[in-house]
Nucleic acid binder design. Structure first.
Lengths: 118, 118
DNA sequence: GCAGAATATTCGGATAAACGCATATAAGGG
DNA sequence: CCCTTATATGCGTTTATCCGAATATTCTGC
């Protein structure tokens, strides 16, 4: 594989895909949309942050084609356009989980978080 | 699943795992280490950036347990500690690839981005 | 214990995100 | 038309991240 191609693909990845994973609230939006379509009001409830923030995070995802927006009258329904993003988050959670099991010193701090999964 | 637990897990994910994916050079390091262990000098060659930058990116990954550092005399060999990170990058590349094929309207915008390099 | 090689860290400055508030746009119903 | 509901955006500020150059640390062989 050509070295410059890889560099460019990674740059593109960094611009267009990675921002989705690069903020806890955006990850949460993706994760929540995995279950069902939601409108901005519902998401705002779910997330517990100002509506303008939700809207801005949605725009980050929407501009990159990672969620889909469909207008129905005055409300707009959002769906997860790239289902694999949820898979990615699951993999990352798995890595985190294994790390927390492994290093017992750190695990102790964080045990509360893990126990909900069992 | 408790809502606060998810929030906290995502915060942890954002602090401890996501930074690995949040920089093209770090993604490249992970991707290159997937193939074989390398020392800092080799990585510096491979990446074409100053050694101090490579070292700082490595520290980001090392502090989070995502790469493993093993000293052998004066040189330090790095290996990929979480193989699934390479899987994640592959998935993200897949998403990107499909986006570039699929949406022709957006593709047009992006083609410019791609061609300026060609 | 000194010289040299390999790697890590400190530092100041530049760039980019994120935030919240206020406001703008868009659609529907009277 | 005007009012209300739903969603998006402009703006100024704060906060975080990156960078390269220089310097510090760690190890080896002599």
């Amino acid at each position: 594989m050509n070295k410059d191609f890889l560099d460019e693909e990674l740059a593109l990845l960094h611009d267009r895909i990675c921002p989705a994973l690069n903020h806890p609230l955006r990850m949460k939006i993706l994760y929540v949309l995995k279950e069902k379509a939601m409108n901005v009001g519902e998401l705002t409830m779910e997330m517990g942050i100002p509506q303008s923030s939700v809207s801005r995070h949605l725009s980050v995802l929407r501009e990159r084609g990672l969620v889909r927006a469909e207008r129905q009258g005055t409300t707009i329904w959002y769906t997860l356009a790239e289902l694999e993003l949820a898979t990615v988050i699951d993999i990352l959670r798995g890595i985190l989980g294994r790390q927390l099991e492994g290093h017992l010193d750190q695990a102790q701090t964080i045990l509360g978080i893990m126990s909900e999964e069992a």
